[in-house]
């Protein structure tokens, strides 16, 4: 029944074209006495690429982790296709299968090969048969240029290779939206490019994405919309060109100046 509802929601979304995939309303989160998110509101429409930038500790990673409820917010709502993730009775695990996530530290399953990393969830959650899942996995691995490593263990891969596999793993669930949590922050400068290229290609293919990143040039080039966060609030939001060339807020200007100088 829930999948039927899904399809209905999808159909509706496709019909109007502008129904948001994710809508965040009044989101608040504190760690102890530290208030990390203070009343966040925003939405992501289908096909949109949204980058979240901001200084360390501004709450951008926490916000991203709230979108699939890896971090449970204290107040507010996260709507996925009109279903409230924060509602206790929502089947969170089912909704998460539609939301892909890529982590800063890759988090590939250390006890599985590259291929098994990609097929594990689709097979276990009965989305596909093993053969079908492997076929999809090979396709997604080719897409990120990692199919030659399908049978390798994950420990021998370089950081960039691991992150590309992590992206393929998320794609194998054919998610409607991908969340990237600083996907290149743990990588050596010279291999950042290979991961950013994969993400850029995904964006060009029309994938809906939310990217938390410190790569300003990349965010500027790939995004439809940029969100600047500071001190747990969305300070500025808008078109990347406008934001990078004529930021409205003084704090944004200060932040961007530091990056663009480098």
């Amino acid at each position: 029944m829930s999948s039927a509802m899904d399809q209905a929601a999808e159909a509706q979304g496709a019909a109007t074209g502008k129904d948001p995939i994710i809508r965040v309303e009044g989101l608040r989160k504190s760690f102890g006495s530290l208030e990390v998110l203070k009343d966040i509101n925003f939405e992501v429409k289908p096909g949109e690429v949204v980058s979240i930038i901001g200084a360390s500790g501004s709450g951008k990673s926490t916000l991203l982790r709230c979108l699939n409820l890896l971090e449970e917010p204290d107040a507010g709502h996260v709507w996925f296709h009109g279903k409230d993730l924060t509602e206790e009775r929502t089947n969170l695990n089912e909704l998460r299968t539609h939301i892909g996530m890529v982590f800063q530290s890759f988090n590939l399953f250390a006890n599985k090969t590259v291929l098994a990393n990609c097929t594990h969830a689709p097979v276990l959650l009965h989305k596909m048969s093993k053969d079908q899942a492997e076929k999809v996995a090979h396709e997604e691995l080719s897409r990120v240029g990692m199919d030659q490593f399908a049978n390798a263990g994950v420990t021998q891969l370089s950081g960039g290779q691991k992150q590309r596999v992590a992206i393929a793993r998320a794609l194998c669930m054919s998610p409607e939206i991908m969340l990237f949590d600083e996907p290149t922050s743990a990588l050596d400068p010279e291999i950042v490019g290979e991961v950013l290229n994969v993400i850029r290609e995904l964006a060009e293919a029309g994938m809906t994405m939310v990217i938390v990143t410190h790569e300003m040039e990349f965010a500027r080039g790939v995004s439809d919309r940029v969100i600047f966060m500071d001190g747990g609030v969305i300070l500025e939001e808008g078109d990347p060109e406008q934001m990078f060339t004529h930021p409205r807020e003084a704090r944004t200007r200060e932040f961007l100046a530091r990056y663009l100088d480098e």
Binding site: N68, L70, N93, E94, L95, R96, T97, I99, G100, M101, F103, S105, F106, N107, L108, F109, A110, H120, A121, L124, L125, A166, R169, A170, M173
Partner: peptide
């Protein structure tokens, strides 16, 4: 590493599935 559990949960595995596998 807790990242292993988080990655599994983010794919939609239940707590028990993630722990077990």
């Amino acid at each position: 590493d807790t990242g292993q559990l988080e990655a599994a949960r983010s794919l939609g595995l239940t707590q028990w599935q993630a722990m077990r596998t």
